[in-house]
Design a protein around this nucleic acid. Structure first.
Lengths: 175, 175
DNA sequence: TATCTTTGTAAGTGATTACTCACAAATGAC
DNA sequence: GTCATTTGTGAGTAATCACTTACAAAGATA
């Protein structure tokens, strides 16, 4: 991976997350990365290839993140660590950009990245089952759905105070 | 409102909801509406004006929808009717298009339409207070956030079975 | 050093974009 | 019927789009 190729990926991640995929031009990406526009096509073939590279890079990071949860055997810890992930978007600017891009892409290209969340959902289903919930699969779905909603507000509503809402939601799971 | 003007609004709603605002061209809208492209600019000045007209039309519809809830005094009925709204997107294709557009616009233009939901949130806060919840304001926020997450799945995940999840969520509020 | 491959650039390409403009048809008021 | 206004069209516009191409610089291998 050359230095300029990395610059392109970083610039594209920022711009796609800010302005969306379709409405970010390749010339803009090149300008922010400080390279010629042609270099984008040399490295990534076309604009979609650039997006694919960004998404793939992030999916590997997501896998690493979920691995920590999936291997957890203590059910309450599974739930607690799931909330931990939700709170992580607030830490690193790059992580926030990546997750924001995920949601933007969902709405822009209408492809729900179900598979990415599947291991987490299975771990949660298992945890809720162990905890004696009546419909563990539905409970797992509902928790992830609530976190989707939380992310929506977090990214789109400027003055949104996420912490007290997370705290309330946690309390409903006894955390 | 002339016939052709209405055709434009309808075509634009469909296309914006399907493909997004920025990546739907005015020529495409004109073609679907069966009018000349120039007529769009005659009636709406520019592309943003067309979007504004669509959104305004829908906001009035949303107000009417919420009015029924806001005037409700029985707190459990407020919560029940809120779920009723959530289930409405599944009925009419036009209503679905409108709400889908709302979410798409949120992510594309990053402007959260807070004000639109405010009367509903206040009614819910009031209801939860009457029902003796500890943090009625947060509870109202959390419920609306969960419904945001539900909408995300409903619109983006093809095989999503929304009914059992709504049923589970309802049960958590004693409905 | 000579040669081959990779990395990089600058100046293009035709297609599409939002939008304008000159003009015609329809409508309404008197 | 006449005139003014509104509604509508079709052929423009400059700017921008994703992408190509010809060619140069840099690195690696011998």
């Amino acid at each position: 991976m050359t230095e300029k190729k990395e610059k392109i990926l970083q610039a594209a991640l920022e711009l796609f997350a800010q302005e969306g995929f379709k409405s970010t031009s390749t010339s803009k990406v090149a300008k922010r990365a400080g390279v010629s526009e042609g270099l984008i096509f040399r490295h990534f073939e076309n604009k979609e290839g650039l997006l694919a590279a960004i998404i793939q890079e992030g999916e590997e990071r997501a896998k690493m993140l979920f691995a920590n949860i999936v291997l957890e055997t203590e059910p309450m810890e599974v739930v607690r660590k799931t909330f931990e992930i939700a709170q992580m978007m607030r830490i690193s600017k790059e992580a926030a950009d990546f997750w924001k891009l995920q949601y933007k892409i969902k709405w822009e290209l209408e492809q729900y990245g179900e598979h990415k969340m599947e291991p987490l959902q299975r771990a949660l289903t298992d945890a809720f089952a162990k905890l004696g919930y009546e419909s563990p699969h539905l409970e797992a779905q509902l928790l992830l759905i609530s976190l989707d909603g939380l992310a929506t507000r977090f990214y789109l509503q400027d003055d949104f105070d996420i912490d007290p809402v997370i705290k309330l939601l946690k309390s409903k799971y006894g955390i």
